Simulated assay, not measured.
Amino acid sequence: MQNYLLIMNKLLVYIVLILGFSVKGFSQLNFGIMSSNNYVGVYSYNGVTSTNAYVLRFQYSGTNLNIPYWKTSVRLLQPIISTDGTKQFPANKLAFQITNTTGQAQAPNTIPTVSQIGAPLSVSLQQGQETFLVPQSNAALKNTTPYNSYYDFQMNYNLIIEGGNYLTALQGGYTQKTYIVSLEFKAYGTNNEVLGVEQRNYTIDVFKLNNVPVENKLSIQIRSGSNALLDVKTLSDYVNGVSVIYPQGLSIIADADYQLHVKSIQTNFISNTGNTLPLNTVRLDLIPASGNNANVFPVWLSAGSQKIATGLQSKGSPVYYDIRYATKPNDVTLIESKMEEYSTTLQYEITPQ
């Protein structure tokens, strides 16, 4: 018997975003995005949050809706260039923040909560790649009834524009500088079939800002190829556990004392067929490389943010950590699990102490 645990590393970028509308899809199921507006102005280095700015919505009329492991995503269609062509707004300063779910379903079916879905609470936009707002839902879109009924499921999102002195280069002097954000939203079904697609534009105006803040410069990077594969295949592997180390898999540069946190985007390891394993099947250790005097704190993986290291400012030079992943010896959960590849995505964060 053989099991694989795949861990995909993802950096945390902060914050902001926009949204739109989507449509169509699966039998009588429609996917769409309701937006309260398509504009926000930035008047402060603190950034701005547009509360409940967008609603991702699934609607269905019928008797047999049951779609497990669905996904939703957003993709930036082009760089965010100012209308005068002089500046580019960084995509990773835009983020979606899910707040709650609402809607209606025919009893005994229910509307899933954010925690039941397993949606990440905040997702930053990434330049040049599709970003998943719901990487794979743990709760199905479900409304099975003996007679025709209406199903309406809504996920409410804030739109956040990150604060910071990066805004200095983006403002327009005494008149605002305008940026158009072009987005494509998609919903996927169980077998990655597209349930709906919609493109929307969002306008951001950055006005003249005062009192430039002093910011700590912090950066974190996961080495290419540091996705972890734990191969559990022999009796000894199950009895003793397995581990893998990625030398200098993580590096940071910090001009202030810092701390590192990690969390899983999903609430479980998930296989392609929908089977799950608990996150705490795997332990994560950071091992300071030579010259790195940081304090480290081993953790069992969790969907909650956990501190994994603290360190002193690096004075402009990178410091490195080896990344080690390991399973538990004699883990009954692994022994009794089906032989498949299970995966999750990790999000690392660096902040000042």
Rank of each mutant, 00 (worst) to 15 (best):
S73V: 01
A91L: 06
Y60M: 09
I111E: 02
S122Q: 15
G47S: 06
V40P: 01
Q129T: 09
I81T: 10
P79A: 07
G41I: 09
I81R: 07
G41C: 05
N109V: 07
A107P: 15
K71M: 10
S122V: 11
S44T: 14
G85M: 06
A95R: 11
D84C: 03
S44G: 04
G103N: 03
Q28D: 14
V55W: 04
P90N: 08
T113R: 03
P68V: 04
N37L: 13
S44H: 09
S137T: 04
T72P: 00
Q116V: 06
A91E: 05
Y60T: 07
L29D: 02
L76I: 05
T113K: 05
A139Q: 00
V123F: 02
A105F: 03
N46A: 14
T131S: 06
L65P: 14
N46Q: 15
Q127D: 12
N52K: 14
A53N: 14
Q88G: 09
S61F: 11
A107T: 10
T99F: 04
G32A: 14
D84V: 01
G85I: 06
L94I: 02
Q127L: 14
T49Q: 11
N92S: 13
L76K: 06
T86W: 10
S36I: 11
N100S: 09
P108M: 06
Q127K: 10
T144N: 06
N138Y: 15
G128R: 12
T131C: 00
F96Q: 07
G47N: 09
T131Q: 03
N38E: 11
A105Q: 02
S50P: 01
M34N: 13
F89P: 00
T99E: 11
V55A: 07
T101H: 01
Q59M: 15
V123L: 02
N109H: 07
F89K: 10
A53C: 13
W70R: 00
G62M: 09
T63A: 02
P68M: 09
Q28E: 13
Q136M: 12
T144W: 03
L77W: 03
S122A: 10
K93E: 08
P120M: 05
P68Y: 11
F96G: 00
T144S: 04
L94G: 05
N64S: 15
Q129V: 10
L125C: 02
S36C: 08
